[in-house]
Design a binder for these strands. Structure first.
Length: 482
RNA sequence: GCCGAGGUGGCAGAAUGGUUAAUGCGACGGACUGCAGAUCCGUUUCCUGGGGGUUCGAUUCCCUCCCUCGGCUCCA
């Protein structure tokens, strides 16, 4: 297991990671409330922690990555009422869209997406423990957490309870003993989905599902908790208060990882502010790899400002350039296989490749510095410029050696996918070859008007044609004209 | 008001108590090309919010001020 460091938000320092039970790593990331389509900001969380889990796996750890789904809450109920849809159905629908987007983005590391409503017994049980231990009190069918009873409350966020501004953004609910108390169980109002409990029909409060799930899946303590910076207070603070009070064990989490938010025009991207750009639109317009690259091109803790279409356009251009040499290598290897004969690599080039991979691991092992890793990959692509002109003369194993840093990028960053083949696959390739053959003949006899006509026609069909000497290569232009 | 995260070139965005502060985008010039495209080479020597301090040396550590964003019980 490789040693690596992580910045822990609770201790406010970058520390050496030590798993509780090596090589296992319990990784919980605050998931989504699928009441609406996901936007670019949500996607960042998905991709960032996917790369974390990928790195852990590469380094010999065995992460168990759980991302919860809050499929019942106020907004879902409100949206459901607006459209006459059962909120649980609404949640399923948006969750399905989320998983499809994640698949496109290459998010492969999540092991389990527990839904809040599948953990009602665990939730009720945890609330009961809190009541029995004197940390929570029932009031008219609801149950509240009494913040004053938990003296570590505020440690994660640095807040002092007496400095909070109660009700600054939401109304203080009646029935609480103190404004900072938060709801664990919400009494059902007529027509709302509800579950039975010792306090009457109701549903879970916002924070309780996470700790009910993690205590069940990981036990009272686990390794890493991730989420957006905006969840630090109150949500993560509440998680600590709930779990540590309910189980009597601490700390709940050894490493808190908070990802920076995506802003747009300087403001947080948020559904409620109405400034969000939909994740699926970004993926559809610029392609999933451009979106993934965009996220990983900044350190996960940094704020990231989304500038209209420009950010993703820029990411797409940069990514495609980065992937250029990789595409050439994989093209040849796909055609001829690893056994293809040819020149071998001089030892210093082979050493450079493996040293590049080592540096990549080092960058990632320093608080998951994906930006540094990408800079290294650009350096490698630049070094590849010496090889690209005679890449056709290299042996399969030489090509594989040159491809090692890209394979790292694929494994850890989830970039350099080769499965972006067009619908039509091989058949399309054969048809395009016929057109390119006709064009090659036109060029050979100097009929450039005809050659350009064919190139333009293929261009309209969505294919880019690039000449290299008398050979032509083609690829689908991103953006998929249809 | 309190808490937190930030402020780096035209833009995006890293890093570090010490030779020219990554990398990418953009721009400009050139090579290659029938023309493009892609690619390559070169240039973009004057970029670390302001002011103090510690130090031989600060963008980095300390103090202070300014600004932006986030949170203060809906939020990734």
């Amino acid at each position: 297991m490789r040693r690596f460091t992580v910045y822990d938000t609770l201790s406010r320092e970058t520390r050496l990671f030590v798993p509780l039970v090596p090589p296992k790593v319990g990784l919980f990331v605050c998931g989504l409330t699928p009441y609406d389509d996901a936007h670019i900001g949500h996607g960042r969380i998905g991709v960032v922690f996917d790369s974390v889990a990928r790195a852990l796996t590469r380094w010999g750890y065995r992460p168990f990555y759980v991302q919860n789904v809050t499929n019942i809450d106020d907004r879902l109920i409100a949206r459901g009422a607006e459209s006459g849809t059962n909120p649980l159905v609404l949640a399923d629908r948006h969750f399905l869209a989320w998983t499809l987007a994640m698949r496109e983005l290459g998010v492969t590391s999540v092991n389990y997406y527990p839904h809040a409503t599948d953990f009602i017994p665990e939730i009720v049980h945890q609330i009961q423990s809190l009541v029995e231990r004197g940390f929570a009190y029932p009031a008219s069918g609801s149950v509240y957490y009494e913040v004053a009873k938990f003296d570590r409350y505020g440690r994660l966020s640095g807040q002092k309870v007496e400095e909070l501004r109660p009700g600054s953004r939401a109304d203080v609910e009646p029935g609480k003993r103190a404004p900072e108390d938060f709801v664990l169980w919400k009494a059902a109002r007529p027509g709302e989905p509800s579950w039975d409990s010792p306090w009457g029909p109701g549903r879970p409060g916002w924070h309780i599902e996470d700790t009910a799930i993690t205590v069940r899946l990981f036990g009272p303590r686990y390794d890493i908790h991730g989420g957006g910076l905006d969840l630090k207070f109150p949500h993560h603070e509440a998680e600590i208060a709930q779990a540590e009070a309910a189980t009597g064990e601490a700390p709940l989490v050894n490493f808190w990882m908070h990802a920076g938010l995506v802003s747009i025009a300087g403001e947080k991207m948020s559904k409620s502010l109405g400034n969000s750009v939909l994740l699926q639109d970004g993926i559809g317009t610029f392609g999933p790899m451009a979106v993934r690259f965009y996220y990983l091109n900044a350190h996960y803790r940094s704020p990231l400002d989304f500038v209209g279409g420009k950010s993703l356009e820029e990411a797409k251009v940069a990514y495609e350039r980065l992937a250029g040499p990789f595409d050439r290598i994989s093209e040849i290897l796909a055609r001829d296989g690893l056994e293809r004969s040819g020149r071998d690599l001089p030892p210093d080039a082979a050493r450079a490749a493996s040293s590049c991979v080592e540096k990549l691991d080092e960058a990632m092992a320093t608080d998951f510095n994906t930006r540094e890793a990408i800079a290294l990959l650009f350096g490698w692509s630049k070094a590849m410029a010496d090889w690209i002109p005679h890449v056709e003369s290299l042996s399969g194993s030489a090509l594989a050696a040159l491809g090692a840093p890209y394979r790292w990028g694929h494994e850890v960053l989830g970039l350099f996918r080769t499965d972006d083949s067009l619908p039509g696959g091989e058949l399309l390739g054969r048809v395009v070859a016929v057109a390119l053959e006709a064009r090659a003949r036109a060029r050979a006899r100097g009929d450039f008007a005809e050659a350009d006509r064919i190139r333009d026609a293929l261009g309209l069909a969505g294919l880019a044609i690039e000449d290299e000497g008398d050979r032509s290569r083609w690829h689908a232009r991103a953006g998929n004209p249809e």
